[in-house]
Design a protein around this nucleic acid. Sequence first.
DNA 1: TGTATATTGTCCGTTCAACGGACAAACCGA
DNA 2: TCGGTTTGTCCGTTGAACGGACAATATACA
Lengths: 269, 269
Amino acid sequence: MRSAERLLIVLRALNLRNGATVLELNRDTGISRQAIYRILDTLRNFGYVRRQEATDRFHLTHMVRRLSSGFKDEEWIADIAVPILGRLVQEVVWPTELSTFSDNAMYIRESTRGRSPFTIDRVAVGQRLPMLQSASGRAYLSYCPDPEREAIIENLKSSDDDFDQVAHKPDYIERILAATRSRGWAVGDDSFRLHPKTETLAVPVLVNGYARASLPLTYIASAATAEQIAERHMSQLQAAAKEIADRMEEMQARTDDDDDDLIPIREAS
Amino acid sequence: MRSAERLLIVLRALNLRNGATVLELNRDTGISRQAIYRILDTLRNFGYVRRQEATDRFHLTHMVRRLSSGFKDEEWIADIAVPILGRLVQEVVWPTELSTFSDNAMYIRESTRGRSPFTIDRVAVGQRLPMLQSASGRAYLSYCPDPEREAIIENLKSSDDDFDQVAHKPDYIERILAATRSRGWAVGDDSFRLHPKTETLAVPVLVNGYARASLPLTYIASAATAEQIAERHMSQLQAAAKEIADRMEEMQARTDDDDDDLIPIREAS
DNA sequence: TGTATATTGTCCGTTCAACGGACAAACCGA
DNA sequence: TCGGTTTGTCCGTTGAACGGACAATATACA
């Protein structure tokens, strides 16, 4: 799609220097002037670009935000995790996932079930996991900022989900959190299992010191104990969590206009 | 540009339901399935979209932020101001502008010089205005949040611009701010004039109670006094400022995914 | 005032990229 | 096992996009 590609190139170029003339865009992108006119026209029809009357320069409008407004922060971390999980599944044979907090529960955002030889059941993405029983939820709660944890537990108390009722037992919660923290990773509770024959353990993804996601590993219970799995794979799991966190911190630090990308500003000639 | 338009439509549709299949996009947009494939391919080549392996759904990636990351907040308010200034110049014959704070000074972002019969000099957009002498700067300083004002004045003290030296006279600053506040609008100082025969007065644009921009009006000094201009046009100026502010508050309130737009999600059939 | 250069805007004949009908394959619930 | 739904790809046709070319305007300098 030639013209569509060029539109994206021009849109990107406009982001790099807000306020540009046709000729400047031509030089920045290598796209012919005539084509730039056509592209700016269509962008203008959509309201993403306006022409500043006084200076005759083209500017982005606030509407461009709509081109990315649907992209949520939880997506971001999942997005970054994809290639890292891909590598992880080659070292650790068991399927691993990435889950984030949302709406009083953890949700599986990415999964390597399907690429793991030990896949138990199908599609897990989108699966909801209770906070206090799942390994993901426990890992997250144990390492998220204190005010966030308090708020979550407060919310769980008014939940009508059966699993969330234990939120009313502060000593139980405290025991779980303490155990998780002393171990450095969380285990799932027997009362919640996606599949009867499997067990799960999880590590938190610590961005700037606090959990923003969990990285659960699911294995077949008859094959090994949690301790054995941990001994074999915990360092790999934690390295992956660290790598995801590093990428996140790195991305957040940047202003966002940078280079190292797939997108050619200049057209291949 | 047919294919480019369709790409934008699909991109927007993806924002409205993050995670979509080809068929869903087909239904949402009315674009043929084959075309959706082509579009998603090009979006994928640019890294804006990825396919979630487990669910076979297409998702936006964090890269989409780059399509709007160049759009700054100061642009936003200028952007919104354009049509409002356009209407204002029809009521008030004198040229009006919109200026925002940046880099220790006010900058003219939009202007109706050129549409006003009384245009004095050409292109004013991009013009830098000193904080303590220009009407724009005074209006802004008088109504911005206290910590911001203190920080700005602190910065001005270490500026090497001659105009900014008065930042060292706190009683002078205080007198100006008090006068501006009691009036409700600011006047420019004789020591700074873009054009010798003109004078300027300005009102702040108060978003959530604090100045985010200024709305200056420039008139020919021999034609009227500041008081006369104020009497005739102040209510119109302030109404325009209010309208800009309202739009800003409104936009900030929204999550950003809304409807009332120029962009057809469904193709005209 | 005239000449040279840079920039903007539009026309229009050519061509190839985009189009969608059509078909095959996979999937799913009954 | 069988319809219905969804996914993916092929390929002949066509018109949208392409860019060369020219006109118009602005700016600089002699």
